[in-house]
Design a binder for these strands. Structure first.
Ligand SMILES: [Zn+2]
Length: 208
DNA sequence: CGGATTTGACCTGCGC
DNA sequence: GCGCAGGTCAAATCCG
């Protein structure tokens, strides 16, 4: 065996690993782009519906079915924010993001082989209109989780989690809580906090 | 013992 | 109406 061959094999393995990581990042970014596209599509729909609604109201009274439809379609658009989170291949579908959620359901969907989990805020009697939906595993990459939040908390993240900020075994929360504390979710801005595409700091992305 | 999770049952909108 | 697909409820169970 030449040392040449061994060396070449090693370098090729290193290259393979590097490319694997690159591929991982690209998958993540693709997921982010997909989510953004969904959001843009939703906005276009909303604008269309507004136009149609105004036209119809100009023309005259229309049926309550249409009103119900429009309301049902428009309401989820109004209050929905997504976050694309990269986890470290944990099965734990239980998200610890600084708030405390209570899981109330889980269903498998038609298109996604992995189930979708539903959460509610643990402080419902404290007046907290929230609904949370979460689906994981973008069909092959089990390290990507897309969480969709609906509604906003009225309470701060008191009452519980004071996680260590160093390196907890659960991977996906510290950067998230930081973004919550800092970004504070501007109410009507399309700004997405995308962590830089540098090398490893690509963790999660807030979309709105 | 109290709260969270699990998980099948149940409900509801929607298309046929 | 019927059936499907997705969303929610609630009894049972788990876990500290
Ligand atoms: Zn809350």
């Amino acid at each position: 065996m030449d040392a040449h061959a061994c060396e070449r094999v090693e370098s090729l393995q290193a290259e393979l690993e590097r490319l694997r990581k690159v591929n991982e990042n690209l998958r993540f970014m693709l997921q982010v782009m997909h989510s953004k596209c969904n959001i843009i599509e939703a906005h276009i729909q909303e604008m269309k519906l507004q136009q149609v609604g105004s036209n119809l109201s100009q023309i005259g009274p229309y049926y309550t079915n249409d009103i119900k439809k429009i309301a049902r379609i428009e309401v989820p658009i109004a209050k929905a924010s997504q976050i694309v989170v990269r986890t470290e291949s944990k099965d734990s579908l239980v998200v610890k993001d600084g708030y405390q959620w209570r899981k109330y359901g889980q269903k498998v969907t038609k298109d996604n082989p992995s189930p979708r989990a539903y959460f509610r805020c643990s402080m419902a009697p404290t007046g907290c209109p929230v609904k949370k939906k979460k689906v994981q595993r973008c069909l092959e990459d089990n390290s990507i989780v897309v969480a969709t939040y609906e509604g906003e908390h009225t309470h701060d993240l008191n009452g519980s989690l004071r996680m260590s900020l160093s390196s907890p075994p659960i991977t996906l929360d510290l950067s998230l809580s930081g973004s919550i504390q800092e970004n504070k979710r501007p109410p009507k801005k399309n700004l997405c906090k995308t962590t830089t595409t540098n090398s490893r700091s690509l963790k999660n992305v807030w979309l709105h």
